[in-house]
Simulated assay, not measured.
Amino acid sequence: MTRFYHPDRIDYDMVMSSGHDGRRLWSTAGVEVVDPSTVLVEGGGPMDGDAFRAYAASVAPRLRDFAERLSGVESDAGSTAGRYQSYQQVRGIIRDAEGMMLAEVRADGSVTVLGELDPSLRRQFIGMINGWLPMTIREVDRYSYENALASLIKARRVVDSMLREVIGIAAGGPEPLPWDRVAEAAGTTPAALTSWFSSPDELINS
């Protein structure tokens, strides 16, 4: 079933501090009301998934401008590192008229649509299943254990990325599940899941 989106405002968030558990704490530093004439549907009506994702990505240049104004970064070549760091400290949240989060936008143009898998992760996951992962058995049969191990670790990281994505959708989507039910479905405890979910560089159960 096709999902439709009707953006009403964009919140420009900044990282204010980091929580004790490693999570970033964000605070809204600016709000922009969406002008219906700026959306990709005549009259500013609801958009399908592809149109909404394209609209969300179009917010990125404004988000970069916002980051540079807040950080005071100049546009000369010597400020590249500072500019990049400032980009990591801001995000855009697109909301509907009721305040429901529809998408998160980053200054690099990446878009996370609430309730949908990231397209690049979807492609990577499908490519893993249909492509290089089945070759792992062949590598073992050829005694290429180093290649097989590298493929398995790569696969595990892709699966963990998919797991983190689905957990985020399940717990924070339009019809969120309680955290204890998400943990039960993941075969772990709420505390263990929280610890893993807030440490993106670690493999689950590692």
Score class of each variant (00 low, 15 high):
Thr2Val: 15
Arg3Ala: 14
Phe4Cys: 10
His6Ser: 12
Pro7Tyr: 08
Pro7Val: 14
Asp11Ser: 04
Asp13Gly: 03
Asp13Glu: 12
Met14Trp: 06
Val15Arg: 09
Val15Phe: 02
Ser17Ala: 13
Ser18Met: 13
Ser18Gln: 11
His20Tyr: 03
Arg23Met: 08
Arg23Phe: 07
Arg24Asp: 15
Leu25Cys: 11
Leu25Gly: 01
Trp26Gln: 02
Ser27Gln: 13
Ser27Cys: 09
Ser27Met: 07
Gly30Thr: 02
Gly30Ile: 00
Gly30Cys: 01
Glu32Cys: 04
Glu32Val: 09
Val33Met: 09
Val34His: 06
Pro36Tyr: 06
Ser37Cys: 08
Thr38Ala: 13
Thr38Phe: 09
Val41Leu: 10
Gly43Pro: 06
Gly43Thr: 07
Pro46Val: 15
Pro46Thr: 09
Met47Glu: 06
Asp50Lys: 12
Phe52Lys: 03
Phe52Ile: 07
Phe52Gln: 00
Arg53Asp: 13
Arg53Tyr: 04
Arg53Val: 07
Tyr55Trp: 14
Ala56Asp: 05
Val59Trp: 02
Val59Asp: 05
Arg62Asn: 13
Arg62His: 14
Leu63Phe: 04
Leu63His: 09
Ala67Val: 09
Ala67Asn: 12
Glu68Gln: 15
Arg69Asn: 07
Leu70Phe: 08
Gly72Met: 11
Glu74Leu: 13
Glu74Ser: 15
Glu74Thr: 10
Ser75Trp: 06
Ala77His: 05
Ala77Glu: 14
Gly78Glu: 10
Ser79Trp: 15
Ala81Pro: 00
Gly82Asn: 12
Gln85Cys: 06
Tyr87Lys: 05
Gln88Glu: 13
Val90Ile: 08
Arg91Gln: 15
Arg91Met: 14
Ile93Thr: 11
Ile94Pro: 04
Ala97Arg: 04
Glu98Leu: 13
Gly99Leu: 07
Leu102Arg: 05
Glu104Pro: 00
Glu104Asn: 09
Asp108Pro: 08
Gly109Val: 03
Gly109Tyr: 02
Val111Arg: 01
Thr112Tyr: 07
Leu114Gln: 10
Glu116Val: 07
Leu117Cys: 01
Pro119Asp: 03
Ser120Glu: 15
Leu121Trp: 00
Leu121Pro: 00
Arg122Cys: 08
Arg123Phe: 07
Arg123Ala: 10
Phe125Cys: 02
Phe125Thr: 10
Ile129Arg: 09
Asn130Gly: 14
Gly131Pro: 01
Trp132Ser: 02
Leu133Asp: 03
Ile137Cys: 01
Arg138Val: 12
Glu139Trp: 08
Asp141Ile: 00
Arg142Val: 01
Tyr145Glu: 00
Asn147Asp: 14
Ala150Trp: 03
Ala150Asn: 06
Ile153Gly: 00
Ala155Arg: 05
Arg156His: 11
Arg156Lys: 11
Asp160Trp: 03
Asp160Thr: 05
Ser161Lys: 10
Ser161Cys: 05
Ser161Asp: 15
Ser161Leu: 06
Met162Glu: 01
Arg164Tyr: 10
Gly168Glu: 06
Ile169His: 06
Ala170Gly: 01
Glu175Lys: 06
Pro176Ile: 05
Pro176Phe: 05
Pro178Val: 01
Val182Glu: 04
Ala185Ser: 09
Ala185Met: 14
Ala186Asp: 08
Thr189His: 12
Thr189Ser: 15
Pro190Asn: 07
Pro190Cys: 05
Ala191Gly: 10
Ala192Tyr: 01
Ala192Cys: 03
Thr194Gln: 10
Ser195Gln: 14
Ile204His: 12
Ser206Tyr: 04
